[in-house]
Amino acid sequence: MGFDLAFALSSVPTILGAVGTTLCVAFVSCIGAAAIGFFFEMVRRAGGIAGLTVGFVIDFIRSTPVLAWLYFLYFVLPFYGIRLGSMTVGVMGLSLYYSGYLAEVFKAGIDAIPKGQSEAARALSLSRRHAVIYVIAPQMLRNIAAPLGNYFVSILKATPYLAVLAVPEMLGRAFDIASETYRYTEPLVVAGLIFLVLALAISNGVKRLERRLLAVGSR
């Protein structure tokens, strides 16, 4: 049988047609993960019982597979009468799963700011809120830009998991073609290559951004 190049090429447009969906899902999930992750990190940093609990939740998320979270949300939410589209459930799953990782990114981004910065802010009588807005947050954003970009790539590469929930992203499309034609190899290889190219291109962009930020830091 072998690899049918013509058939592979003919499947490219269909699969490429889902690039938009894939990028969209990755982007929204990344924002969701960042929002939850930031919230988690702020609560953890505040300490107390809430902080310890959230710290444990973060550890729990990081100790469990994304696939299990997707199944969990997909089957458990309807059990409680919450009916959402599979795309929504998928985005929720990716957001929740990666929030555990992004919380660590925020933590590292804040910890890397020298202690003298918040002390100087206090010595200048800036309120806590102003110190966060004008002194800590801008420096944190610079510290997290590159790791955040790298996690965007990770999330992008996790979007094909949503195929198990029948979300029509690229892997889903590839399987659609496969089940119509009974040829699995070609569409899967095409989908894999498109992901590889996307991931490498974005990683490369992140690396450049990182270098520019480093240059800015030493100016």
Binding site: P114, G116, Q117, E119, A120, A123, Y134, V135, P138, Q139, R142, G217
Partner: peptide, 11 residues
């Protein structure tokens, strides 16, 4: 207050 390590805001 003036610190040993300046503590200027780099950004």
């Amino acid at each position: 207050m003036v610190f040993q390590s300046f503590n200027l805001f780099p950004h």
